[in-house]
Amino acid sequence: MNNPDTHSGVTNAKLGVWLFLASEIMLFATLFTSYIVLRMGSTSWPWGWDVLNVPLATLNTVILISSSVTIVMAYARAYDKDKGGFQKWMAATLLLSLGFLVVKGFEYGHEFALGIGPHTSVFYAIYFTMTGLHGIHILGGIAVNGGLLWMSTVDEHWNNHLFLGRVEGAGLYWHFVDVVWIFLFPALYLL
């Protein structure tokens, strides 16, 4: 049973995941602060619509938000111990995440083909750094979610009373990645 037997009132796992997310918040906060500093200290800053592919990024935003919904649906199915439902929604999450990376691949590919890279300007430096780091976090999330999907096929793991907590933890991480993109998208592309 998952009665949290701790002074905090939450399970150690959940507290641990939130503290991890707190450190990730600090990491991205640093990057956002640097972005603000560099932009305010610059003489000119390009407008997102001119230099980046905003429609493609909008598609990515829709994809990522959808994947957030599918992962919370997977949690809902796991809560009711519906293995088939969980696997279906988790697979959908994985597909959408991979889709995000594919679209990003097109974006980067187009830029690299034009010889644009992090060295081109401060704008591109911060753009590639932040979207790149975000992309690495997506990769990590794919690994975790894929791992959970595999685990659900093994009876010993699916029936473990800790499994729901694991799904929730993975969901928390995934939503965090989504929130970062929610801020990243307007900051880099729209404003």
Binding site: S42, G117, P118, H119, S121, V122, A125
Partner: peptide, 23 residues
Amino acid sequence: FHTSFYMPKDIVILGQAYAGSGG
């Protein structure tokens, strides 16, 4: 990667201009 997070514009190091964009 020759980014310019910390390199100001037109900085010259040991007689050579910096390879990145500055800024």
